[in-house]
């Protein structure tokens, strides 16, 4: 039995259907990411699980118990907010102890657990700081500790890394994943960053227009997108359709080939290199094929050097890829 069972969940704000019939089962100990552009309904689903929004229809079960209309304070879930939502008038320790104080956990136990949680997020020594005296990353960790210290069955994370700079974000991604393994709590993670989703998740649910477009493991989402939206949103999409598909692939339909699967060789589909982007370890080319389609190609820089790369613009070349790299979408 899944830890969380969501059935036919729907929620509208005015005339806008934010969530429009979502079914989702989440397993215990899983790291699942709700991925999608803003307005796709992912955050609304998260807020309904937390209890901040009341669904119009559908049910949410947690460990078999229907929690659809329970208030937030009666649910065994905790949330890490996008803006951290730390209590500005309390110091770090008081913030972390808040949930336990509400639940009347004895003082010594409370203190002990809070200090341990602080250690877990590597903020020992900061217990008497006020949130305003912390950096963004430090606040993030406090928010995490404040939620985790309660040992909820599910931790909800609402774009928690969105406000951090790139380097810190990448570091926190790794830490979060490690932490999840360590504590073994189910994480439901909301993000619009596909890279983040691919790096961290056990499974990804891609949202668009209030529905789940695809629910699968990261590799499957990336390599075998079910439809054009998923293909376009996750990774860089090379979509080949219509006349070009018939000419190049000899098939009808819409197909996708990931840029790193394409090789630049002497033979294959003829075209011209229009743009060249040097990325360090790799180079990205935009190739306009004679068949009337533009493809993005990613090449490891193991063979060419940067000097050669620049001179490739305008060069006539030919592209080829393995048949198994072609994947038909929708």
């Amino acid at each position: 039995m899944a830890l969380i069972e969501i059935r036919n969940l729907a929620k509208a704000f005015g005339t806008v259907k934010a969530v429009d019939g979502v079914d989702l089962d989440i397993n215990s100990g899983e790291f699942i990411t709700l991925l999608g552009p803003s307005g796709s309904g992912k955050t609304t689903v998260l807020r309904m699980i937390a209890g901040f929004e009341d669904p119009d229809s559908g049910t949410i079960k947690l460990s078999g118990q229907d929690i659809t209309h329970l208030p937030p304070y009666d649910r065994d879930v905790n949330t890490v907010f996008q803006d951290y939502a730390l209590f500005p008038h309390m110091d770090v320790l008081a913030n972390i102890e808040y949930g336990m104080r509400v639940k009347k956990v004895p003082k010594e136990e409370r203190r002990e657990k809070a200090l341990k949680a602080l250690e877990q997020v590597r903020l020992s020594g900061y217990e008497n700081r006020k949130p305003s005296q912390l950096s963004g990353g430090q606040r993030q960790r406090v928010a995490l500790a404040r939620a985790l210290v309660n040992r909820p069955s599910v931790l909800l994370l609402d774009e928690p890394l969105g406000a951090l700079d790139l380097k810190l974000r990448q570091q926190m991604q790794i830490e979060l994943k490690e932490l999840q393994r360590e504590v073994g709590i189910t994480f439901i993670f909301v993000t619009h960053d596909q890279e983040e989703a691919l790096t961290m998740s056990d499974r990804i649910a891609v949202f668009d227009k209030g529905r789940i477009q695809q629910l699968d493991k990261p590799a499957a989402i990336y390599e075998k997108p079910r439809n054009e939206f998923v293909a376009g949103f996750v990774g860089v999409s090379n979509l080949i359709s219509g006349a070009a598909a018939e000419k190049l692939l000899g098939k009808k339909g819409t197909f996708t080939v990931r840029p790193e699967k394409i090789r630049i060789e002497g033979k294959g589909a003829a075209g011209v290199i229009r743009e060249v982007e040097y990325l360090g370890p790799a180079t990205r080319f935009l190739v306009e094929l004679d068949a009337g389609v533009r493809l993005v190609v990613l090449q490891q820089n193991s063979e060419q050097s940067a000097v050669d790369v620049e001179s490739l613009r305008g060069r006539k070349i030919a592209l080829s890829w393995d048949k198994e790299s072609e994947y038909q979408v929708s």
Binding site: G51, F87, A147, N150
Partner: peptide, 28 residues
């Protein structure tokens, strides 16, 4: 911010507790 009130409820505080534990001290 709304999120601060949500956070309090999320951590198990009923509305009264949220009001006296969070809203009042911040508005003090």
């Amino acid at each position: 911010p709304n999120s601060v009130l949500d956070a309090s409820a999320d951590l198990g505080a009923k509305p009264g507790r949220t009001f006296f534990g969070v809203v009042l001290p911040i508005t003090w």
